[in-house]
């Protein structure tokens, strides 16, 4: 008996979030959304003293819950906790089955679809289109450091409020 008979393959991998239509809408409207998002980031930074008074630790859970709800709806966000959406044309790179944060792999199909999921457009083909709409193509050339897996599930919004307010 072959080992594969004893441990049958589960077949094609299931994508956990099949809500791709809204994600694609977000990339198509990247320009407007990015402007909205930039305003929101400014508001977050302005709120830093308030957040500090309430306590970032106390805010973490409720803010992360809201962030998860909003960003999952708009971007199929995976809550990696180190958001790079503004540098990737508003296409969340964590939707890439290889989790590539620095650009597409070499397996992208001629039709621009994913090597792993042939019915899904490549996240980085969308990122390129989104960045072109936002006028931020050069940001795709920024090298993203390897992901810190400890931050999974944490709020990037609070991080943004705090990090940018520092200087």
């Amino acid at each position: 008996m072959r080992a594969t008979d004893a441990f049958p393959a589960h077949g094609v991998a299931q994508r956990p979030l099949p809500r791709r239509s809204l994600r694609r809408w977000s990339v198509r409207h990247a320009r407007a959304l990015a402007r909205l998002y930039a305003g929101f980031a400014r508001a977050l930074r302005a709120a830093d003293p308030l957040f500090a008074r309430i306590g970032y630790a106390r805010l973490e859970r409720p803010v992360a819950a809201v962030e998860r709800a909003v960003k999952t709806t708009l971007f199929d966000c995976r809550m990696c906790g180190q958001c790079v959406l503004s540098a990737t044309g508003l296409a969340c790179p964590m939707n890439c089955p290889k989790g590539l944060r620095n650009g597409p792999c070499g397996g992208v199909r001629d039709d621009g679809h994913c090597e792993v999921h042939p019915d899904m457009p490549c996240v980085w083909v969308e990122a390129h289109a989104g960045a072109a709409r936002m006028g931020t193509l050069m940001r795709l050339s920024e090298a993203q450091p390897p992901i810190d897996h400890r931050r999974a599930g944490a709020s990037s919004w609070l991080q943004a409020a705090r990090a940018d307010a520092a200087p």
Binding site: G103, P104, G107, V108, G112
Partner: peptide, 16 residues
Amino acid sequence: NPFAPPHDFRPLRLAK
């Protein structure tokens, strides 16, 4: 892979 989409991005990815 110079032959895979997004073609415009491939030389920039090489630079990266």
